[in-house]
Design a protein around this nucleic acid. Structure first.
Length: 554
RNA sequence: GGGCUUGUGGCCUAGCCUGGAUAAGGCGUUAGCCUCCUAAGUUAAUGAUCAGGGGUUCAAAUCCCCUCAAGCCCGCCA
């Protein structure tokens, strides 16, 4: 709907002015669309922008009126307001299940996110990755893409060698009710302590690193056990968050099946490769000072080599690769992209997000200095349960628990996704536990209100005549949903959807307070109920796309 | 030292890419609103030299340069 209206205005403006860019943009509070083309034409036409705007408006008013679009000027601005036909069309479209879905796009997209090292549970920094990646995945699906979501499991890194050493040498029993990934973290922290106290342990770690690369069965089994234990715990957390993966890809697989060696051979053949005793790629042509090391002088490979093999594999199976990575991977990510380009392979697109730190400083799994995602979810759920109990004491406990979980997960996810990814943040308990405005519960609450009205209303005959300011503003915001989805896909910035959801809830609440629905007279009642249904359906679709439960009662 | 990112009322955030109409929300504070569709709501008041300086432009929070501050990176770690 919006696209068509936009194009109609753009075409007419182009015809009238002869300009290639008619400077058409959001009209804000003034209009649905506005053009500042009059400013640009002022110089060449040697007339005042106000005059030009008036002339253009006079020339196009009739044409656009036929399309149901009103044109007017305010000073030099040309404003366009979409009429009743547009509003009715939007409400009709938004009433259908699945509203917002875009036409299927050919090709497969691989989205990799989270991929945290399996040496401990996910913490509040990791889940920024999960939430951005999962929201992006949901938006892509809704926008018609065939996607596969992957977690790359670094199962042969140094930390895993340290964890396996800890399991062998430190007698640390698992606590009762202790989640496996939390147990692994405890062993990892203790092993690091031991390593610090006795540097000779490093030799044993190095030995394990060599053995794992050679595929020594006993070492492989030790690593596999530790990694599995941790990964299963991580999966539980991701499922709680509603951010599951289609598959976990084990890094060691690319060593075992020989594909890494194959890639290293190809790298070796590159004119940019240098191999005295090590294998590295010279990326100065791409502006990198440091060379990209892939194989150590002792013959073992580094992480980057396996990562390269993983991406070549992904390139064989997918048409588009998207990785979500923390800002600390900016350099290594750019080096990977450059090397993929040199190899003539598909270059992954990388979505970077900045760090989440604690008020007392940055987080560290090794130092045991972090707030785990599980702890966060537990605390928020507890608070949510208390809140539901205060508000709805009459509900059975089971139902209150279910609502609390939906509210908590929503609150956690929304709190993360609403901030644009290039901004570093400081974790704040007070904010995490705030369920008031600009939070998921606020949006969920609007949805529940809409559901409640519809339930009380019963059957009604759809009607599409809207007259009040609140009705029209709400309908127009509903019409923007597909536009926002496209923006998120184009820019790979999911926070736009979060902001959109909040604005939609705001407009629904304004409508709710200014325009009575159930008590309105017959004709108006039908139209308002139709609008409530469209709003409810849109809120539900938006929340779902954000990975937040659209609960019907709270 | 070099590179990347950020800096918007007391606090948190949107707007910045694609320059234009009184800089938009929330938290906080103050004063209101439940015989009325769920008050996780809502009305109003309060509060901003858009880090600082320079430049481009008819027009700069937005683009360019410099300075300052914060975070991250610059391993034969991952």
């Amino acid at each position: 709907m919006y696209q068509e209206a936009y194009r109609a205005v753009e075409t007419v403006l182009k015809d009238a002015t002869g300009a290639t860019d008619v400077l058409l943009g959001d009209g804000g509070e003034h209009a649905d669309l506005a053009s500042t083309i009059a400013f640009a034409l002022a110089k060449t036409e040697k007339k005042s922008p106000v005059l030009i705007a008036g002339e253009i408006t006079a020339a196009i008013t009739d044409t656009l009126a036929a399309a149901g679009i009103t044109v007017s000027t305010t000073g030099p601005y040309i404003n366009f307001i979409f009429g009743p036909a547009y509003v009715a069309g939007v409400v009709k479209a938004a009433s259908r299940p699945g509203y917002g879905c875009l036409a299927a796009v050919p090709g497969r997209v691989c989205i990799e996110h989270t991929s945290a090292n399996p040496n401990g549970p996910l913490h509040v920094g990791h889940i920024r990755n999960s939430v951005i990646g999962d929201t992006l995945s949901r938006v892509f699906r809704k926008a018609g893409y065939d996607i596969d979501v992957q977690y790359y499991l670094n199962d042969m890194g140094r930390q895993i060698a340290i964890v396996s050493w800890g399991f062998d040498h430190l007698d640390i029993p698992q606590n009762e009710d202790e989640k496996d990934d939390h147990y692994v973290a405890r062993v990892y922290v203790a092993a690091n302590h031991a390593l610090k106290a006795d540097p000779s342990i490093k030799e044993e770690i190095d030995r394990r690193m060599g053995l794992i690369e050679q595929g020594d069965p006993e070492t492989v089994e030790k690593f596999r056990r530790a990694v599995s234990l941790c990964a299963e715990g991580i999966k539980v957390t991701l499922n709680r968050l509603g951010a599951p993966h289609d598959r976990f890809v084990w890094e060691s697989g690319f060593v075992q099946d020989g594909s890494m060696v194959e890639i290293l051979d190809r790298v070796e053949a590159l004119p940019e490769s240098s191999h005295d005793d090590i294998l590295a790629v010279d990326l100065t042509a791409f502006g990198f000072e440091k060379e990209y090391v892939l194989r150590r002088s002792d013959g073992t490979s580094v992480y980057a080599a396996r990562d390269l093999a993983y991406h070549v594999w992904k390139g064989e199976h997918f048409d588009r690769l998207i990785n979500v990575l923390g800002a600390d991977h900016k350099l290594i990510g750019a080096q990977l992209q450059a090397t993929m380009k040199l190899l003539g392979e598909k270059v992954p697109e990388i979505v970077f997000f900045e760090f989440v730190s604690l008020p007392e400083g940055s987080m560290s799994t090794r130092a045991g200095k972090f707030i785990s995602a599980d702890e966060l979810i537990d605390e928020v759920t507890k608070k949510a349960f208390d809140e539901v109990t205060i508000r709805r004491p009459e509900l059975p406990e089971e139902e209150r628990r279910a609502i609390a979980v939906s509210v908590a997960i929503g609150a956690v996810r929304y709190d993360i996704v609403r901030v644009s990814q290039e901004k570093s943040t400081v974790f704040d308990w007070r904010q995490a536990l705030d369920f008031e405005r600009q939070s998921a519960p606020y949006i969920q609450y609007s949805h529940a209100r809409a559901c409640s009205i519809l339930e009380k209303a019963g059957e009604f005959t759809p009607a599409y005549e809207f007259t009040t300011e609140s009705e029209i503003a709400l309908a127009k915001q509903i019409g923007l949903f597909p536009v926002v989805l496209r923006t998120v896909v184009n820019e790979l910035r999911p926070h736009h959807l979060a902001i959109y959801a909040r604005d939609l809830a705001d407009l629904f609440n304004t409508f709710y307070h200014t325009d009575p629905v159930l008590k309105a007279e017959a004709g108006v009642r039908d139209a308002r109920l139709t609008l409530v249904r469209a709003a409810q359906n849109t809120l539900s679709e938006v929340l779902e796309t954000l990975g937040i439960d659209a609960i019907r009662s709270m």
